[in-house]
Design a protein around this nucleic acid. Structure first.
Lengths: 347, 347
DNA sequence: CTGAAAGCGCTAACAT
DNA sequence: ATGTTAGCGCTTTCAG
């Protein structure tokens, strides 16, 4: 592989001059510029990004740390981020944590040794331990939190969805369809956006004058198998079967659907199902599933732009916490009007 | 950020000694080792991977170039590859081409300037133009082709699926269920694995003594919208409606399903549907979809291992072309026995 | 406008 | 076993 020096020699100029025509920051006479460009072409020269990084102290690489690229929710976030970095000569280093705190620690340490300029982070459940994130910050690497927020990270930029409002709207829809026994299958409650969804759920019930019961709230972890288990639990409850399921993501919904089949419970005849998610999937199930659709691509795009601003290093505004709106898409799975036997007498 | 030199100074040893305890390649007395380790801990020192790369000429980074991370087929390949690289201190740089040759060229050029040690590549349709890949190879960067192969790349390692056998098995199943008018919705025919599937399709028909017609083979591009369009075309054909659809991936299948709904054609009552794919998705549709399931994770894992072998630079074996077997999973979408009106008179 | 030169942080001979 | 040193390929003052 040809080096800059070889280009310089062939063009009979100094290394500095080659560098100048490459960067365009310093004027170079047309004659020399031409010679340099010819030499570059002749040698098929390609600047060594590693050497450049060492010299400039910037790698033009950002890490993106996500739970699992295999969950269709996250790739769209990555594409959103990629759309802003691609073309600006940045690379994205993707790392999966499987929502495991230890893996998140390792991922951050890894990115630090790789000298990334910044990090986009979807935090794993962390019972308040954000020391590893603080260490990244202290090393001068800006972080932007995506999709989820965390205690102790109030000074870190974030972009997420207004989960509370979205959950409330969805549950209100369920209530409007006549449901009162609405079971909620959630992700880990140590995730603040999951807690926001629970808040929205409770708020909707409160407004409708329906007492909420913690028996109806089943904590899970966004995995398919857990959806199956929690759904079985919900239907085994002493208080009677729920008439609606409000589930925190599509993977768990897929699991719950399996459980329903096993139980011989039909949707939407016997139970309504609504889910959180950002992917087109819910529309393809039969019945098509009512979903709170999050602007995933936009989360990635906006997060990347916020990070870029921190990287460009002008005057830095105080930390920003952007909240995006989700959209409720009502489909067959909740469209059957339900007359709850437990409902109060109608006037 | 502390540097190795600062560690050396604090431990009152030379830079070389610090490097030695870091790498473990050269023996260091316990006393000094201890001092160095203490200094590392005290300074929260973290080796600068960029400097190391510049010195050693190896970045321990490999690029993975795929069509689209948003297509659920590909993330699993990435995870398979990640499973071998993670823990060996390699990073994976993921780039999307959207199956566009120009983007693939840019991606490869980008990876070259990033000095990656190797590339895992899922090639875009390329009418035989592999010059950009050749250039990567000539720069000394080994490439392993995943999932697809290409003309002119016979000397490049590859791991893919035995598409011909898999397609043949699937179409034979369709034939066994009584179908004779089987439309095939394919990806780009300039992809050799797509052509293999067509071969398998034709072979199955031939064995069953059914004449194949190119009217029934609709070339597409793996996109959802294209699935919709091709499905409409297939049902508008003069020769009459197909009774079965054999589709090359899940995205196109989702599109085709939409078209069927629009056409008022029911599956499996009016038409059978079978798809190629590697994801659990087909099982969740109603009806559940018969699918040729490819070992995606394994494709990524094996490809990564083959690349690693090229990277380790021992004696290099000749190029390897691994073929993995796919598995036919029969589900409701093809399980209704079909009596084709065009079928030959029964005895 | 162009060239010379000093490193960025690290590794790997090579000397001691 | 430990220290010294010469770069890896590039950018960036600073002189001229």
């Amino acid at each position: 592989m040809a080096t800059l020096k070889e280009v310089a020699k062939r063009a009979r100029v100094s290394a500095g001059t080659v560098s100048h025509v490459l960067s365009g920051n310093t004027p170079v006479s047309p004659a020399l510029r031409k010679r340099v460009q010819d030499a570059i072409a002749a040698l098929d020269y390609c600047p060594d990004h590693v050497a450049r990084s060492l010299k400039t102290g910037r790698t033009k690489t950002v890490g993106i740390v996500i739970p699992d690229i295999t969950n269709p929710f996250f790739p769209q976030i990555i594409r959103g981020a990629e759309s802003v970095f691609w073309g600006r000569d940045y690379s994205l280093l993707t790392l999966n944590t499987d929502d495991d705190l230890e893996r998140e620690r390792r991922a951050l340490a890894f990115l630090r040794s790789r000298q990334v300029d910044g990090v986009l982070l979807i935090i794993a459940p962390n019972r308040g331990d954000v020391s590893h994130i603080r260490r990244t910050l202290e090393a001068g690497v800006p972080v932007v939190c995506l999709d989820r927020e965390s205690e102790g990270l109030e000074d870190v930029d974030s972009v997420s969805v207004d989960d509370m409002a979205a959950a409330k709207e969805c549950v209100s829809h369920l209530i409007a369809m006549g449901h009162r026994e609405i079971a909620m299958l959630t992700g880990s409650l140590s995730l603040n956006n999951v807690r926001e969804r629970v808040k929205g759920y409770k708020e909707a019930l409160r407004e409708a004058g329906i007492p909420s019961s913690c028996e109806l709230i089943k904590e899970g972890d966004f995995r398919k198998g857990t959806g199956t288990r929690l759904c079985h639990e919900a239907f085994a409850a002493k208080r009677g079967r729920p008439t609606a399921l409000f589930i925190s993501n599509m993977l768990m919904t897929m699991g719950a659907l399996e459980a329903l089949t096993e139980l011989g419970v039909r949707c939407p005849e016997d139970v309504a199902v609504a889910t959180f998610d950002g992917f087109a999937l819910p529309a393809f199930f039969r019945p098509a599933i009512t979903a709170v659709v999050q602007p995933v691509y936009e989360i990635g795009r906006l997060g990347a732009e916020m990070l870029l601003q921190r990287l460009d290093g002008g005057t830095q505004p105080p930390p920003v916490h952007r909240k995006l709106a989700a959209e409720l898409q009502v489909r067959e799975s909740t469209l059957r009007a339900f007359k709850n036997t437990l409902a109060p007498a109608r006037k």
